[in-house]
Simulated assay, not measured.
Amino acid sequence: MEDRKNILILFFIVFMTICCNGTQSLQNEKKVFIKQLDFGHKEYFVCYDKDTSQCSCIFSPVYYYGLCVELYRSPNEKYFFRYMNKDENDTTAFGGFKKPREKIFRSPTSAEMIDEIKQCLSVASKNNNLNKLYHFSFRLSYWCDVAIQTSEILEKENKLNVIRHADIDKALEKTSLKDSLMNIFGCYGKTIKEIACCEIISLLRKENLQDYSPLYKDSNCPNEIVDVEVIVSFDDAH
């Protein structure tokens, strides 16, 4: 009788452990949030339980051409958030452009950022035809690993002092960017037509990347990191 009682107690302990672990995994599950913005724009971003990512994917309908996606990244700003009465440790409760945040959003690694973009696309694909994706854009500094790789190439070629857009384009071809993009968009049947930079070229001190990447501490990392708008054009939308 005693043995039977002990077996029942052991079974109960194991059962409760499984239930608790299952609940914990659900609580820590990554979730995609969506915010409807003005003029048909939508913001998608990932939240890790109560920890919100710095990255957002802004979907913009461009009539006559197709769908455009912009990667936006900020340590303390997000279109989605407005102040609400919640636990101050919950980053899903704070934000907005008008009031600076004391808390910063979660800084994903480049691998995590790629995974986040893929998750946002997966959710967006339920209401958008991603075959019509026309282009994808981002600031180079947002993609920290690629920004550092690009700067290293330009530094070796002695082109960091006087940088042309064409020099950055050629340097980007030697980075991991294209492979990463195909990893993200290839499953939607997209092929890359062109990767080109535009707008004003600026040089950031490597310390400016501290909210985006731990790689800025690398002693081999150039002291100045090139930053520019990058436009990725895909094959014709169909």
Rank of each mutant, 00 (worst) to 15 (best):
A196N: 06
A166P: 00
E173L: 15
D211C: 03
N223C: 11
D227I: 07
N158K: 15
I231S: 00
K170N: 14
K178D: 13
R164V: 02
K190A: 11
A166Y: 13
C187D: 11
E199H: 10
Y216W: 14
G186V: 06
V162H: 13
K159T: 05
S219T: 12
E207H: 03
L177A: 01
Y212L: 07
A166K: 15
N208M: 08
N220I: 10
V226E: 06
L154V: 04
S213E: 09
C187K: 15
I201F: 03
R164I: 02
P214H: 00
P214A: 00
I195H: 08
R164H: 15
I153A: 02
A171S: 15
G189L: 14
V226D: 10
I201C: 03
D227M: 10
H165F: 04
V228P: 04
V228Y: 02
D169F: 08
D218C: 00
C198Y: 10
I163E: 04
I201W: 05
S213W: 09
K170S: 15
I168R: 00
D218T: 00
L209N: 04
C197K: 03
D218L: 07
D211T: 00
D218N: 14
A196L: 03
T191D: 13
S213R: 04
K159I: 02
L204G: 09
E157I: 00
R205I: 05
K174R: 15
C187P: 08
I195R: 01
